[in-house]
Amino acid sequence: MAKRHSRDLELTIISAESLSLAGNCRVKKNPFVVIKIESNADQTTTTDTENNNSNPTWNQKFFINIPMNVRFFTLEVRCKKFSGDRIVGSARVPTSDFEGHYFPMNYLHFLSYRLRDRNGERNGIINISIKMMKNDQRVLLTHGVAVGVPLHVRY
């Protein structure tokens, strides 16, 4: 099942900061994050119900698999609306930020990215952590099903 030409990583969506919905209006509608990797099914965090504001925290861990030829993945912060989901902001995460040739395996990277809305305007920051997994640490990836296990990261 595990593909040979790919890498596995443990991705934790920690939190986002200073999100806003159109203008200065605060985000009130349960923001959540969608992880998009080319040629894989999307994975989604659950909505953040505790912190219903512009600084949501999720602390949810995912095991994701990225084909060798893919150089980045995308994170989208979305909100539930009557008319479906709305993208609040998105960020591209280049794999080179955590794959540099000198990083040891299992190094815990803390990374933050600027989120931009559809018009390319700045809209908050997303904080994540990433750990590359050694091959023998591979977990069985259940394709197509979200495997978000809520986990409290202490930092």
Partner: peptide, 13 residues
């Protein structure tokens, strides 16, 4: 203000 790179990456600390 956290430092921001040209690619949109932001300093974590």
């Amino acid at each position: 203000q956290r430092l921001e790179s040209s690619t949109g990456r932001i300093a974590t600390r």
